[in-house]
Design a protein around this nucleic acid. Structure first.
Length: 853
RNA sequence: GGGGAAGUGUCGGAACCGGUAGACGAGCAUGACUUAGGAUCAUGUGCCAAUACGGCGUGGGAGUUCGAAUCUCCCCUUCCCCACCA
């Protein structure tokens, strides 16, 4: 009786051996093409769950395949280990975040090793270590010197639960992405990074082989809008008596063609001019409104269902084009964070303004004539479509496209229906029309000095200050004499003191640590205070992949020598949830690094692949409240083994779609591995029985077809069909009766090499047991020969009027006339030929369709 | 409100260019072997009929085509992302 497959024993044995032999360490080798294969590093949240396996196991198979194809593959691993979750968990458990993090990393590392992945452990990186965050601080200094870091007092997203500010990207539906508490606003002095300087370049995706979906999300997030900054002079006859430096209000508009339709002006509640412009009699009401806007959460404030509200502030400005006096309102539908924080209200041609005007009984002046509209007629709704300008002084009659080209076809059709005009005709008219009211008014504004063309982005500057403990201290000192002073490079790192009170109070925890706060000014040596905020952890993750290439290098964040060889990353894999956070920040960081001369090229990640999400059996997302899914169960590893878990996760479906985790299906993989085990160890099946001999040519054909299929699937991350092909192949071998020992050996040799990327342990074990040289993971991937893979005979389907009536086995080389003859001779076909044959459609190698009258 | 992805047996899924729908697994059924098994092996398994060389089948409805899961239009459902962007 042959020995049974015992995955637990085999797997631990090989994992130890590979580690001892440093099989997976990558070294610079100019004689080989390199392949930097990166997977997003995990947050150190504790035990590994099946989601981690899902991110790592298929990527490992793809990386192992690359290595077998002759690439020098770099496959590092690290830990994103600063940040709120560590702190929150530590507070809950009453442990220091440092202890919590160190323990988690140790546990995660051990659990990771049971997966049998080809990680190069010599390049491990953890962001909480001073050797790492020292370079965050170094980057901060370089950014500062290049004018890419600045300090500003601005209303910031504030999470009342986490007691810290958040970047725009970390607010989801108006709530904190971590704890889902509704976000409010707070005015604080904050450090920001000028990512907007790179907005234009970040919109260039031409060098990226990324999923369209992600590019689209980044494009939308950056949100480029071309428009005009228009200046509306303040009316001197109104307003408060306060002396104002500002003489005008700036608005950003994409629709200057509607400027004659302005009937009011809206300032965001946080707009700097509100307090100064408000008249005394309006002051109480305005202040109450501003105060309630401030208290509201983002969710309440940005709900689209909500009615537009606002308050007249008593002041007026003047429309430079029409000369008309325009009342100024404060309303929370204007956002400080977009454009100039002020909106020109054109109710006739903007839905929001229309709703606002309706509520406060403000005039609606149509300045673009909708189809079938008569002058003087009231508008039932805002009209955003194209048409001739009216009520617009010298611009009357100028055609303007309105929002037409910005609308999707769907929206255009809806608009056509709403205003009862012909969609096709209008589309054609806009295409043909040479007039452009938008450009005409914009040019006029520039000529008269009333405004200038400008581009506005949805992307905000990146707010990196955090009022929390567990992060990188910002290397800045405040001196009474010298103000903001940077900590000199040779004094880095500014160490995070281990003994600070880290419980959040709303104040930065470091502020109460006297020994940390009190320092001396690097310039004059007199007493000074340290900055007590820490950095957003997205700073850490923006460049970790640069550190991997040589994590011990101490003369800079990255080793230039290693950088020249390894960078950029050839393949990046990870979840799509980072589409506009990490992936945008990392692209930005790279571009700055390029400008600092640290790296070459414009993009860090040439190719990107997003795996899907793995759900529990009942399609619930895995979570901490469901411990049965949080831990990749030891018991599972003991029973079926890591190879089976790996292969099952790849077999479950396409990697980018994710799927449900079920223990049931894993039996199928386990059985397959058992069958392969017996097949390989038992030797040629049916060697001595009466079964018909398998044709040698057919054996080779299956072998080469399988290599071709598995290779193609691995190139495209289609692991599920690759494994199905391997199953088909091993099932075929099980049925086969192969005469020659050599042929059999070749067939098995190929099977094991093809399995090695997916199930590395069993492949290595069987390989060794067959007496082949260690290690299978250093063997080349088998090559296929299309002459051998291509079939000599094909099944020709014969259809009558599109219905399959017969299948004929014919040589590939069959001529059309031979095929016709054979098809028409077929008994099965003839019985369906009840009418005269009209024509014959012949698709070589596939089918013949006989069409009758 | 906008954008995107997807709907195929009992289940996960396959079908890459418009050309054999359901590969490969799971589950189920029957049988074999077994003291027993959630072990192993064999056979079957889309639905309806059951005489088969039959009919119907890829969310629903239309269309293009010799031929549609695949292309076009309308409708329905699910998931994801963004959401007062002036």
């Amino acid at each position: 009786m042959a020995e049974r497959y015992n995955p637990a024993e085999i797997e631990t044995r090989w994992q130890q051996r590979w580690e001892e032999d440093r099989l997976d360490e990558a070294h610079i080798d100019p004689s080989k093409p390199k392949w930097y294969f990166l997977t997003m590093f995990p947050y150190t949240s504790g035990d590994l769950h099946i989601g981690h396996w899902y991110a790592e196991a298929p990527a490992d198979a793809a990386a192992r395949y690359r290595r077998m194809k002759g690439y020098n593959v770099l496959r590092p691993f690290g830990y994103d280990s600063f940040g709120l979750p560590a702190e929150n968990a530590a507070i809950e458990a009453g442990v220091h975040p440092h202890t919590w993090t160190v323990e988690n990393i140790a546990r995660m590392r051990n659990q990771l090793k049971t997966m049998g992945c080809m990680f190069d452990w010599s390049k491990e990186v953890a962001t909480y270590l001073p050797e790492y965050y020292r370079w965050n601080q170094w980057f901060f200094l370089q950014f500062y010197k290049r004018g890419l870091v600045y300090r500003a007092k601005a209303p910031a997203n504030w999470c009342p639960h986490c007691q810290t500010v958040l970047a725009n990207e970390q607010v989801e539906n108006g709530a904190c992405e971590r704890c889902h508490t509704p976000v409010t606003r707070r005015d604080l002095d904050q450090w920001l990074i000028r990512i907007t300087n790179y907005a234009e370049e970040l919109l260039d995706f031409s060098q990226l082989q990324w999923p369209e979906k992600i590019l689209l999300m980044q494009r939308n997030w950056i949100g480029r809008s071309e428009g005009v900054d228009l200046e509306f002079p303040l009316d001197p006859s109104t307003g408060s008596g306060q002396a104002l430096e500002e003489k005008s209000i700036h608005v950003f508009t994409t629709r200057p063609d509607t400027v004659y339709g302005v009937t009011f002006m809206v300032l965001a509640p946080e707009h700097g001019l509100v307090a100064g412009l408000t008249t005394d009699e309006r002051r109480a009401e305005v202040e109450a409104y501003v105060e309630q806007a401030r208290r509201q959460t983002e969710i309440e404030r940005t709900s689209t269902e909500r009615e537009k509200t606002g308050v007249f502030i008593g002041a007026y400005c003047r429309n430079p084009f029409s000369g008309q006096r325009v009342p100024i309102f404060v309303a929370d539908y204007a956002l400080v964070s977009y454009g100039t924080g002020a909106v020109m209200g054109v109710p006739a041609h903007d839905y929001r303004d229309f709703a606002f005007a309706a509520r406060y009984d403000l005039p609606v002046i149509a300045v673009i004539a909708p189809p079938n509209w008569q002058p003087g007629q009231a508008l039932p709704d805002a009209f955003v479509g194209p048409g001739p300008m009216v009520n617009s002084g010298s611009f009357d009659g100028t055609f303007t496209p309105g929002d037409w080209s910005k609308l999707s076809e769907f929206e255009q059709r809806a608009l056509a229906e709403r205003w009862a005009f012909d969609f096709e005709q209008m589309a054609e008219r806009v295409r043909r029309e040479r007039g452009d009211g938008i450009a005409a008014v914009a040019s006029e504004a520039e000529r008269r000095g009333w405004g200038r063309r400008t581009v506005t982005y949805h992307l905000r500057d990146w707010l990196i200050s955090r009022q929390r403990y567990w992060g990188t201290p910002i290397p800045v000192v405040y001196c009474e004499e010298h103000g903001v002073v940077l900590v000199p490079e040779d004094q880095l790192p500014v160490l995070l003191p281990p003994d600070a009170e880290f419980r959040p109070t709303g104040e930065s925890p470091l502020a109460s640590h006297e020994a940390f706060v009190n320092t001396t000014c690097p310039q004059c040596g007199r007493p000074a205070r340290r900055e007590t905020d820490t950095m957003d952890t997205f700073v850490d993750s923006s460049w970790y992949f640069l550190r991997y290439i040589n994590p011990t290098y101490d003369r800079g964040p990255l080793d230039p020598n290693a950088a020249r060889y390894w960078l950029p990353v050839d393949q990046y894999t990870g979840g799509a949830e980072h589409a506009v956070k990490h992936l945008l920040y990392a692209r930005f960081f790279w571009k700055v690094c390029r400008d600092l001369g640290l790296v070459q090229g414009d993009e860090p990640f040439a190719r990107l692949f997003n795996q899907g999400i793995i759900l529990a059996e009942d399609r619930q997302k895995m979570s901490k409240s469901r411990p049965e899914f949080v831990v990749a169960p030891d018991e599972l590893l003991a029973n079926v083994g890591a190879d089976a878990v790996r292969a099952f996760l790849m077999f479950i479906g396409p990697w980018d779609l994710g799927g449900s985790w079920s223990r049931q299906g894993i039996q199928g993989i386990s059985r397959w591995l058992q069958r392969v085990w017996s097949l390989v160890l038992a030797g040629r099946p049916h060697a001595n029985d009466e079964a018909p001999l398998t044709d040698r040519r057919q054996l080779q054909q299956r072998l080469h077809q399988t290599i071709r299929k598995v290779e193609g699937d691995l190139e495209d991350f289609r692991f599920n069909t690759a494994i199905a092909a391997l199953m088909e192949y091993s099932n075929f071998l099980q049925e086969a009766r192969v005469e020659s020992e050599e042929d059999w050996d070749e067939a098995i040799d190929v099977l094991l090499r093809l399995m090695a990327p997916f199930t590395p342990h069993i492949a290595e074990e069987l390989w060794t047991r067959l007496g082949k040289s260690y290690s299978i993971h250093q063997q080349p991937f088998p090559a296929w020969d299309s002459a051998l893979a291509d079939a000599e005979e094909v099944t020709l389907v014969v259809q009558v009027n599109g219905r399959v009536r017969d299948r004929l086995l014919v040589p590939v080389s069959i001529s059309e006339s031979e095929a016709r003859t054979l098809a028409l001779q077929s008994e099965r076909v003839r019985s369906h030929l009840t009418a005269e044959v009209e024509r014959l459609v012949y698709v070589p190698g596939r089918l013949i369709n006989i069409v009758t009258r």
